[in-house]
Computed example of a mutant assay.
Amino acid sequence: MEWGTELIRVLFGEEDTQSTLFYLEIALRTVVMYGYTLFLTRMVGQGGIGQIGPFEFVLVIAVGSAAGDPMFYPEVGLAQGILVITMVIILHRATGALVQRWRSVEDMIEGRPLQVLEKGRVLKDRLGSGTLTERELFALLRLEGVRDTGEVECAFFEPNGRLSVFRYPKEEQKPVRPTIPDDAATRFSHR
């Protein structure tokens, strides 16, 4: 096989994928998949993706996939992968500009903090949205050193999956509900 022909195949993929129309199709597919992935990420909820926001999660997934395909599949040319990565970065920057300009877009993409505790009481109706279970909430409270929900004036589950806890002053704390699991409660003194 001739080096020039092989180089063209590596850069642009198989012969049937070298048309301008195919590259426009790639751009359209990228826009659709970016939007759909962002939508699904928001549906998964705040805790489903860990410490990064949905916006960054989509970027990582999209760029990782676009970079990997030309590395493994000979029918996917480097130019096609470069186009997809470029489109994803352009979409990411455009979405970032929209988020900076309009708060409603930021709320739609990144989400809003969800109040999950008030005056030591778990707001169970807020947990039912599929975002956070009571067990996960108690685990996050324990990570913050909270032994009893009565220590907490209010707590918010943040879009990045972390918990913001606002405690009562020590003299205002009262026992409401221990956060320590039942099977471990006997080994720890509550107060």
Rank of each mutant, 00 (worst) to 15 (best):
E2P: 07
G4Q: 07
E6F: 08
I8H: 10
V10Y: 08
L11Y: 02
E14V: 15
E15D: 12
E15R: 15
Q18K: 03
Q18I: 13
L21I: 09
Y23L: 15
Y23T: 00
L24R: 09
L24C: 12
L24H: 00
E25N: 13
I26D: 11
I26F: 07
A27H: 09
L28A: 14
L28N: 00
R29K: 15
R29E: 10
T30G: 06
V31N: 09
M33K: 08
Y34V: 02
Y34N: 07
Y36I: 09
Y36G: 15
F39C: 11
T41P: 06
R42I: 06
V44H: 04
V44T: 10
Q46S: 10
G48K: 07
G48S: 07
I49P: 03
I49V: 08
Q51W: 10
Q51P: 10
Q51H: 11
I52M: 13
G53N: 07
F55C: 07
F55H: 08
F57K: 10
V58G: 01
A62C: 06
A62V: 01
V63P: 00
S65C: 07
S65Y: 05
A66Q: 06
G68Q: 10
D69L: 14
D69F: 15
P70K: 03
P70Y: 00
P70I: 03
M71Q: 05
F72K: 10
Y73I: 14
V76G: 03
L78E: 13
Q80P: 13
I82F: 14
I82S: 12
L83S: 07
V84Y: 09
V84N: 06
I85T: 11
T86G: 09
T86M: 02
T86S: 08
L91P: 04
R93G: 01
A94N: 04
L98T: 14
V99S: 04
W102R: 12
D107Y: 13
D107N: 13
I109H: 11
I109G: 06
E110V: 14
G111E: 01
R112I: 03
L114I: 01
L114K: 06
V116R: 01
E118Q: 13
G120V: 02
R121S: 12
R121C: 08
K124R: 13
D125E: 12
R126W: 05
R126H: 10
G128Y: 07
G130N: 03
L132T: 05
T133F: 08
E136A: 02
F138P: 03
A139G: 12
L140R: 00
R142I: 05
L143N: 13
G145D: 00
R147M: 08
D148A: 02
E151Y: 04
E153G: 01
F157R: 05
E158K: 08
E158R: 14
P159R: 08
G161T: 01
R162G: 11
S164Y: 11
P169V: 02
E171M: 12
E171H: 09
E172C: 00
Q173H: 08
P178V: 15
P178M: 12
P178Y: 13
T179W: 02
T179V: 04
T179L: 04
I180G: 01
P181T: 04
D182N: 14
D183G: 02
T186R: 03
T186I: 07
R191I: 15
